Simulated assay, not measured.
Amino acid sequence: MSFLVHVSSSESRQIHAFVLDAETGALRSLEVIDVPGSGAPTRGNIPLTWSRDGKVLYAQIRIAPYPLSAFVIDPTSGKLRLLQTVALPAPMAYLSVTRNGRFLLAASYDDALLTVNRLEASGRVSVPGLQTLTTPPKAHCIVEAPFGPFVYATSVDGEAILVYRLNEASGHLEDLAPSTTVTRPHSGPRHLVFHPTLDRLYCVNEHAGSVAAYSVERESGMLKELQYESIVPADFSGRALGADIHLTRDGALLYASVRKTNSISAFHIDPATGALLRAGEFDVEAYPRGFAIEPNGRFLLCAGQQSNHLAVYAIKLATGALSQVGRYPVGMRPSWIEIVPAPAG
């Protein structure tokens, strides 16, 4: 079995596509795609997300007029073809698709807002959008809970995780009371990930360089902090720039990256309680803004935003340890990585 790997690079405005060998972790270059947009390097990153059926990849350039492009995957070759480009109202740091596949959610760090757009059956994005919501400063992530119909978004400088109820028919995000979980001071909540089976949500904090674990109340969507773990050395000072967070599909291991220390921390997850047990810290590519774990949980792929390389690490399932098995050049300032099964053809 093999997987498709797509890595976006903001300064070169490209997506590098590879085929990942699920047995060895080796990558084979498939193609390089230019992302439509202005001639200027895009700010920060080029966020990516797949449609729920894995047929359409979405990418946005964070320079006016903030074009969002939809690419259709060829079912035989696995290569991408541009389907559509539309303008969103702001530069987005994060894109995701709702569980029912009908709506595209986006979070804008620069403009402190969230948006919802309807998705057509073809994968095209309907404009204008259905809804725009203002947030506290620096919205950075927006995801729907796997059990739904709740949507969670982070505000880095607002020190908050916001929660909404998703109207699955209209796509609108409805306010709840209360609708905000205030995080620890100076933490800077950035990215979120849900446990696949437990009512647990994990957050990597940008400012503090930490990971927080929350219980999720399924009826109300409300959060309660259960655990808080640093992922920087005890003598570290300043903003850590915690970045990304992912779990293995079975929920056994959690990984979180820190840009200032060029490292990824690993934790075992208790299968009954969701509690985190530190497994170790591992050196990775310089400035690991984005990484991903392939669906089998055997390999972690990390983009070095300052090294302009993509590294593949084997995961030792018993210990969580990472060991590099490959390293590949990509575009300039790479960050976002998406991994999906390769087409059967």
Rank of each mutant, 00 (worst) to 15 (best):
S69V: 03
R102Q: 06
S155P: 12
P91K: 06
A266G: 10
V7I: 15
L300T: 00
R200M: 02
E144Y: 07
S96K: 04
V116E: 01
E294C: 06
S170C: 01
S230I: 10
N296W: 03
R102K: 13
T135G: 09
P89H: 15
G274N: 10
F18A: 04
S10L: 11
Y94H: 15
A212F: 09
I73P: 08
I231R: 07
S215A: 15
T154N: 07
S307P: 12
F282H: 03
V5M: 01
E159P: 00
V216Y: 01
Y214K: 06
V216R: 00
D199T: 05
N45I: 07
C141Q: 13
W336S: 14
L247E: 08
S126G: 14
E294H: 07
R62F: 05
R200I: 02
R278S: 10
I142A: 03
T24P: 06
C141S: 15
L192D: 14
G251M: 10
Y94Q: 14
A59G: 09
V19W: 06
G320K: 05
I63H: 04
M92R: 10
H207L: 14
A342M: 04
M92Q: 13
R239D: 12
S77R: 10
L198W: 08
Q14I: 10
S210Y: 01
R333G: 05
L88F: 07
M1P: 04
M332F: 00
Y164P: 11
A314S: 00
N45C: 11
Y66L: 00
T248C: 06
L105Q: 00
K79T: 13
G251S: 13
R118M: 08
P189V: 00
N167M: 06
N296V: 01
Y58C: 03
S10E: 09
Y202A: 08
I231Y: 03
R184W: 01
I339G: 05
D53E: 06
L119R: 12
D250K: 00
V193N: 00
A286T: 15
L301G: 08
G280V: 04
I315H: 05
L276S: 11
R102F: 01
F147L: 09
L226V: 02
G209S: 13
L176I: 09
T261S: 11
L253N: 08
R289E: 08
P136R: 15
N117V: 04
F236S: 11
V116I: 12
P271W: 04
T181E: 12
C141W: 07
S126M: 14
V182F: 04
R43A: 14
E294K: 06
H268L: 14
A59C: 05
R52D: 01
I293N: 13
H16D: 13
I46D: 01
S122V: 05
F299L: 05
G171K: 13
K316A: 13
R102V: 01
L277F: 12
L198M: 07
S307F: 07
A70L: 05
P36S: 07
P41A: 15
N205W: 03
S69L: 03
